[in-house]
Design a protein around this nucleic acid. Structure first.
Length: 272
DNA sequence: TCCTATGTTGTATG
DNA sequence: ACATACAACATAGG
């Protein structure tokens, strides 16, 4: 479920907790989601802490609590945040449960690819401060994209867009949506892009991110049928542009949906 | 039973 | 040192 906009949507699900105190922590201490995290410290420090702010950065979430307590959450592949009124019994996949006076906050993740971090410090934790610029940040420019391209010339566009060090928040469906709109084959190597195509790619990255945040992030509903989004999930879908069958195949180790008649291969270089 | 899944990371290889 | 490819992680659902 969670890419840029879904992560933002999940963050909102804990919105009502802000300004309120945690009175009890329940967790599955041996869950994989706590890898690299001190469970005893988390258990000792969160009770009594008031949630003050919450924010997302790409697929990362950070919750600031009183007293310099920071809770980081990554949803992985199947993670979600849930709020239930009053008390709520801890379920099998509810790895972290924070009870407040009027509500219970739940981090649920069946596959445990998600991750919880806890930091005690005045400043935001180092891992958060060193995240790359967001793709909707003013500093994410076509020039920066061109720099990334020059470092990853032999990477297929599909794999390239999934690199979080350059495109925090882009995931499998966003990458397919961006390439479909930019009319670029996911199999192309980044080194085959001309300057104009790099500008197009930059523009579509930002348009998909903005649109996803508007529809999914804020309204919690799917994008319109003019997007690839609603046609990509199973075999038999038709390209909204060409009305021809979409192709689903593994590219760069991930299932990729694309429209071969619409998304161009590089123009063959002239034989010598 | 077998295959798939909106993600990241460690490891091997070039 | 850097770029690239891929198995592994744990679980549910078709």
């Amino acid at each position: 479920m969670p890419e840029l906009a879904e992560v933002f949507f999940n963050l909102q699900r804990w919105q009502s907790a802000r300004g309120h105190r945690v009175i009890e922590v329940r967790l599955h201490p041996n869950s994989r989601v706590f890898r690299g995290c001190s469970v005893p410290q988390l258990q000792a420090q969160l009770p009594g802490a008031v949630m003050q702010t919450s924010q997302t950065h790409g697929k990362q979430m950070l919750f600031q609590f009183s007293g310099g307590r920071w809770l980081g959450i990554h949803l992985g592949m199947t993670g979600e945040l849930v709020t239930e009124a009053g008390t709520y019994p801890q379920g099998k996949h509810d790895h972290l449960v924070l009870r407040q006076q009027a509500r219970t906050l739940i981090f649920r993740d069946p596959r445990q690819f998600g991750r919880v971090r806890f930091t005690l410090s005045q400043e935001a934790p180092e891992w958060w401060r060193s995240l790359p610029p967001q793709i909707l940040d003013l500093t994410f420019t076509p020039h920066r994209l061109a720099q990334a391209v020059s470092r990853r010339k032999k990477t297929p566009l599909k794999s390239f867009l999934l690199l979080q060090e350059y495109f925090p928040g882009i995931g499998n469906w966003m990458a397919d949506e961006i390439l479909w709109r930019a009319r670029l084959s996911p199999k192309r190597l980044t080194g085959s892009l001309n300057p104009n195509q790099i500008r197009t790619l930059h523009r579509e990255i930002q348009k998909v991110a903005r649109g996803a945040l508007r529809f999914i992030g804020n309204q919690g509903k799917d994008p319109p049928d003019t997007w690839l989004f609603n046609h990509r999930w199973s075999d038999g879908g038709l390209c909204p542009k060409t009305k021809k069958p979409l192709v689903r195949e593994t590219i760069g180790g991930r299932t990729t949906c694309w429209s071969p008649a619409w998304q161009r291969e590089p123009r063959p270089t002239t034989e010598i």
